[in-house]
Amino acid sequence: MSQRHMLALFNNFEEAEAVVRELRGASIKGFNADSDMVVKSPIEHPEVEEFLGEKPVYVQWFTLGGALMGGLLGFFLISGAQANFFAQVKGGKPIVPFPPNFVLTYEMFILGGVFVSILGFLICAGLPAKRSPLYSAKVSEDQISILVKSDDSAAGELKAIFTKHQAVEIQEEAGK
């Protein structure tokens, strides 16, 4: 059965919220509220997301891994480099001295953390991404939109729900 995408734009956040709630509540055949629905908003809008159900975020694991890797790499890189000058001490300090290495390890810890977090962000958020099939520039202005993917059969029902909640505009795109 062929699938189609549908994008509904709302002026009002409460409306969008209501739509999401309703879509999740209703069991429409050919449409899975958990995986086939995407909410797009112009601002960070945790309230709306809450209605989408618990979706875990993994970026912090990247952060942890990156920070640890950065710190370790920093310490070993620095100590290893210092070990090159095995017959040259500096200022009466040991060849591998701790205080400066800790400072640098600290910096590398942060550097690794930040870099890998960004990497994680891109991976987790799926960026850079191709545009989704339906997009309206209005989203980046002031409207909230709900993009759904469903079997052709469910389209009518979804559209009805959208209209019910005063969708400003509904865009459709025929699936393959």
């Binding site: 100590s79 290893g80 210092q82 070990a83 095995f86 001490v89 040991p94 060849i95």
Partner: peptide
């Protein structure tokens, strides 16, 4: 090398 000669590298 670091692990092997650690003690030497820590001499002041």
């Amino acid at each position: 090398n670091l692990l092997e000669n650690w003690a030497e590298f820590r001499h002041t």
